[in-house]
């Protein structure tokens, strides 16, 4: 068997793919976090809870109504986007004039409520959800076996992330959004409905987290706690990448996922702490983050 530094090369490839899958979730979540922060000046602590809701709703829709994975992929983000829009309209809107600290505290409370409710209902053990039939099995790439589902997650997440980036950077809607992030009052004076754009931004951010949750449902343990564990890592990812750049958060998310996968092969004890160590180093060397600028 081929080995590299004493590690079988197939194990290395396997962990790299797992790392890439995790990196996709980091990328999708930090992407949503960034666009929400840009527009609302709120760090959405509840982002992890929406990711968790995405996965739990997928499971719930299947067990209660027999809704398949493919429909869940469409419906769950829509439901969560609607929920996000309602939360933004009714609650978050009251916080815009305040210090951003309050936005963080409020969404932290929201995350606790969502997580607590589901934990109360379903406990902390994993809920089973199987991979859809047409994505079961593996591709034989010659040098390794690639599970089809993992390949699908990476492709889907990359497509969604890049589409979001294209919309923000290349369309007129995205131009309004970027302008409103810089100066909402001036953009409003041009006759653009800034409050509506804010609502849409939050809804889209939440939907992205929910979509990541649907993608994660067959690949990981569905549990009410899955969100809060992830969101703290995503915060570190955001600190490393800086929230200024959309493409930056995608690249950072994927890169850190890969590094985490490598750590799992070569020094498994550090795999849960690697991202935080990298964050500490980045803070020492480049405090504004790799792609960030100090505001």
């Amino acid at each position: 068997m081929t080995t590299i530094f004493g590690v079988p090369i197939t194990a290395l490839y396997g962990q790299l793919v797992v790392g890439l899958v995790n990196g996709c979730f980091y990328a999708m979540l930090s992407l949503g976090l960034s666009i929400i922060f840009g527009m609302l000046d709120i760090v959405n602590f509840a982002h992890g809870a929406f990711y968790m809701l995405g996965a739990v709703l997928t499971w719930f829709a299947f067990t209660q109504f027999g809704i398949s994975y493919w429909w869940a992929l469409l419906l769950v983000p829509l439901v969560l986007a609607a929920a996000g829009a309602i939360i933004e309209r009714s609650l978050l809107r009251r916080l815009y004039r305040l210090d951003p600290i309050y936005g963080l505290l409020f969404t932290f409370g929201l995350a606790l409520v969502l997580e607590g409710l589901l934990r109360y209902k379903y406990g902390v053990s994993g809920l089973p959800y199987s991979i859809p039939d047409n994505l079961q099995g593996v591709f034989n790439l010659g040098f390794m076996f690639l599970p089809k589902y993992r390949a699908w997650v990476v492709i889907a997440a990359l497509l969604v992330s890049l589409t979001t980036w294209l919309i923000i950077e290349k369309t007129s809607l995205g131009a309004y959004l970027r302008a409103a992030t810089e100066n909402p009052a001036l953009v409003g004076a041009f006759g653009i409905n800034v409050p509506a754009m804010t609502t849409i931004t939050y809804a889209v951010g939440v939907a992205l987290a929910g979509l990541a949750g649907v993608l994660a449902a067959p690949a990981t343990q569905i549990s009410p706690l899955m969100g809060s564990n992830l969101i703290i890592v995503v915060f570190a990812v955001v600190v490393i990448g800086g929230m200024g750049s959309i493409l930056g958060s995608i690249v950072t998310g994927l890169g850190l996922g890969l590094i985490e996968g490598l750590t799992k092969v070569f020094y498994p004890q550090a795999s849960s702490t690697m991202v935080f160590f990298i964050m500490a180093i980045v803070l020492l060397v480049r405090p504004a983050g790799l792609f960030g600028r100090e505001r």
Partner: peptide, 14 residues
């Protein structure tokens, strides 16, 4: 309890 704690958070901030 977590739900109640979270709700107090939200009410306090609002």
């Amino acid at each position: 309890v977590t739900v109640i704690i979270g709700a107090i958070f939200m009410v306090c901030v609002l």
